[in-house]
């Protein structure tokens, strides 16, 4: 076991853990944001640079600080390491600059984009970004492309995190898309618009942190904050069948996997569950999904509080005080 201190909180983790995962073990505000790292996908991370942290002490044996900020998603923890995330002014300042860089080619068409309201980049720029843009040059532009019947690619919005490439490689048995070209002209593409047709291909929508890959069956149908999220499941031969239904009245508008607090799906779902079963009778509904109060999706959705639900969270604290 290795001892690591992140923002003055010490924790013991196993050898081979990254700084980001150690921080996630602690939880709370000290977890660095990540746009490209996805814990369920091997090899992801190291591309977006939003998770940069400062290493003040490298290890017990070598107490010197690292010369530059390091990406926490791909830097391994060493014994006696001291990491600064939100306690370091330099980290916060660089993160602000990274957000500005990510937004250089991002079109800011949130009013049109279906991802608005549940977009990682939107949340990140709210928290760390500037209010206005300093960029006056032309942004790169691509025409929207269909990836088969169900998926739409807006290359304008892509931040080249490679998550969808890893998802297609690792959870489907054939990958037909990838990143073509390099640098400023790099783009996600299928060769000759070869469509993606696989039982699990729909998951590239869920792993996309921005609105580059969206569900064509939900395209412009509704805004996420007007829909109601319900946990539901069904018996499925291909996947766990555990999903979130996005409903409006009695109608199912969209089906996605269940995302945890870091925006990663808990279990990947198959295309049958995602696209084909849009009748309420196909599903066993478990109840309303808990959505963070700070999210726009919780707007105008009210919950009935019972006496128990108010008392329970504060019960433990009361005992501690006594």
């Amino acid at each position: 076991m290795l001892r690591v201190t992140i923002d003055n909180i010490t924790i013991e983790v196993e050898e081979g853990t990254t700084i980001l995962n150690a921080a996630r073990k602690i939880g709370g505000k000290i977890v660095p944001p990540a746009m490209c790292y996805y814990s369920k996908l091997k090899g992801s991370g190291g591309k977006c640079r939003t998770c940069l942290v400062k290493v003040a002490t490298t290890s017990e044996l070598d107490p010197r600080p690292l010369p530059k900020l390091v990406p926490s998603c791909s830097t391994l923890v060493q014994n006696g390491m001291h990491v600064q995330n939100i306690t370091s002014e330099q980290v916060l300042q660089e993160r602000k600059a990274i957000v500005e860089f990510l937004l250089i080619n991002h079109p800011l068409d949130c009013p049109v984009c279906d991802q608005a309201g549940e977009c990682d980049l939107q949340n990140l720029s709210y928290e760390h970004g500037l209010e206005e843009t300093r960029y006056e040059e032309e942004r790169r532009e691509f025409a929207p492309v269909n990836f088969g019947e169900k998926i739409k690619l807006h290359m304008n919005r892509c931040i080249l995190c490679y998550r969808c490439v890893y998802a297609a490689e690792q959870i489907t048995n054939e990958r037909v898309h990838g990143v073509l070209y390099r640098g400023d002209v790099a783009e996600i593409s299928t060769f000759v618009e070869n469509f993606i047709d696989n039982d699990f291909s729909g998951n590239i929508i869920d792993v996309c942190p921005v609105g580059a890959l969206t569900d064509r069956t939900f395209r412009f149908k509704n805004r996420v904050w007007f829909t109601k999220a319900m946990d539901a499941h069904r018996d499925c031969e291909k996947c766990s069948g555990k999903v979130v239904l996005w409903m409006f009245g009695d109608e199912i508008y969209r089906i996605t996997g269940r995302k945890d607090e870091y925006g990663e799906v808990e279990e990947f779902i198959c295309n049958d569950c995602r696209f084909e079963n849009k009748n309420v009778s196909d599903w066993i509904i478990e109840g309303l999904r808990k959505i963070k109060r700070s999210s726009v999706i919780s707007q105008n959705h009210y919950e009935k509080l019972t006496k128990q639900s108010i008392i329970k969270p504060i019960e433990g604290k009361m005992e501690q005080q006594e």
Binding site: C110, P111, R219, F220, R223, W225, V296, N300
Partner: peptide, 22 residues
């Protein structure tokens, strides 16, 4: 208008409804 729904979200009286199209 691009039917982004922000007016309907901001509306305290919930007076606005819209359907978007491509």
């Amino acid at each position: 208008c691009t039917a982004c729904g922000l007016c309907a979200l901001a509306c305290p009286a919930e007076a606005i409804t819209m359907i978007a199209a491509e």
